[in-house]
Amino acid sequence: MLILVLNCGSSSVKFAVLDPQSSEVPLSGLIERIGTAEATTTFKRGREKQQAALPGGTYEAAFEAINSALIALGLRDQVRAVGHRAVHGGAVFSGSARITPAVLAAIRACVPLAPLHNPANIAGIEAAQAAFPTLPQVAVFDTAFHQTMPPVAFRYAVPEGWYTQHGVRKYGFHGTSHEYVAQEAAKMLGQPLAELNLVTAHLGNGCSATAVQGGKSIDSSMGLTPLEGLVMGSRSGDVDPGLHDYIARQAGLTLTQVTSALNKESGLLGLSGLTNDMRELEEAAARGHPGAKLAVDIFVYRLAKTIAALAVPLERLDALVFTGGIGENSATIRAATLGRLKLLGFQVDETANQQAVRGHGGPITTPGSPPALVVNTNEELMIARETLRIVSGE
């Protein structure tokens, strides 16, 4: 019994065929540069990779290629359903949903909240429905996990009409990752998830941190959009809202241009003037590059402040969880962050922290310290499990 998991972007489709019970992945791949003559496919089966051009370069061609690969490998008849990563479900979806015309219309209504993401998700859903018309399709929302946040956490101090009429509130993102690593952390700690208070930090090109109480999100750093919160690869994270008007007037920019710059030219990239890649920044900082050092220092400082703030609604912190590309692979960032959290009693175990870089995960603090853990996220597996849960329930 297999689930086809899809993550559709504006010019790419990342996919995996998973067994949600055994976690085995008999086929995965990435289709890039969709919409161009240079579109390519990369299929991975075990340790083998196959790359090829994608004639036509369309979403439809991408799904034809995936379907052909499934048939060629004898997997097509084992695929029971298709699970889609959907970025923004607004306040409508508090869980995953079987895709119907009404559900698709609701996702479309959320486009103003996620104009960079939801249109691509919709295009992927429609292409997948055409390619696999007999399979049930399920949307798994990044925002759904955070619908348990109370109003004290998700409301902004703005005119009430902005909230009631336009949906201006905190939604939170990376929900599938935060939910998955919270479950895995509970297993690692040998304690029931329902009894744990955690802060989970998903750190990659996009970054967010979440307060998880009893397996439920009660606050998170991202907001109305994925721009709020932590310093990210090319996103600014928190800035003074007055910045938009000020820099628009001073630099002669439109508000759209300001927002674009905050999303694409800021964060680690803007601070360093070099790159949005933390690996390259750590190397440059070690060589003495001032911009790289500043970018790394600010990233760590803001992350530590946010983790400490998210401990407030939890009342006690049972463990801190690092995940995502940076969280799983950068011993430097983890150690520096824990070094700034001595207020909460964290003491890093340098040996364990270095070993966790190699993808093994596990505790990275000393026995007398509150636990800090590295947990490898697996959003595709979470989406597959959610998809199976929905279709099995029907």
Rank of each mutant, 00 (worst) to 15 (best):
L70R: 06
E32I: 02
L116E: 03
L255S: 11
H84L: 03
T377P: 05
V92T: 12
Q21D: 14
A128Y: 00
A304S: 14
L338G: 03
G368K: 07
D277A: 08
L2E: 03
N263R: 11
R98L: 15
G339S: 06
P20Q: 04
V13H: 08
G56R: 07
S68T: 15
T259D: 12
V321M: 10
G345P: 04
P226A: 00
K342A: 12
V79I: 15
A186V: 07
A106K: 06
M1V: 09
E60L: 08
H202V: 00
E228F: 01
A261K: 15
S330N: 09
H146A: 03
I34R: 05
E386K: 09
A372P: 10
K44H: 14
A209M: 11
H166D: 06
F43V: 01
V103H: 14
S22N: 09
A81G: 13
E265W: 04
G267P: 01
S330V: 06
L104C: 02
F63A: 15
E24M: 08
N376V: 13
I390E: 09
A91M: 12
A72S: 14
E282H: 15
A182Y: 09
F43R: 03
Q347W: 05
A335W: 06
G233C: 04
L343Y: 07
G89R: 07
G237Y: 04
L189Y: 00
I298D: 00
I364K: 01
T259W: 00
A72I: 01
E328P: 04
R33K: 13
R340M: 11
M188W: 00
I99K: 00
M149N: 12
L230I: 10
L104T: 00
L317W: 05
A285K: 09
L344D: 00
D19K: 05
Y301L: 13
T225A: 12
L189A: 02
M232V: 12
S392G: 13
I107F: 10
A153L: 15
A123T: 14
V321T: 07
V212N: 06
F141Y: 13
S369I: 09
N121Q: 01
R33T: 04
R235Y: 04
N263H: 14
P115Y: 03
V82W: 02
A37W: 12
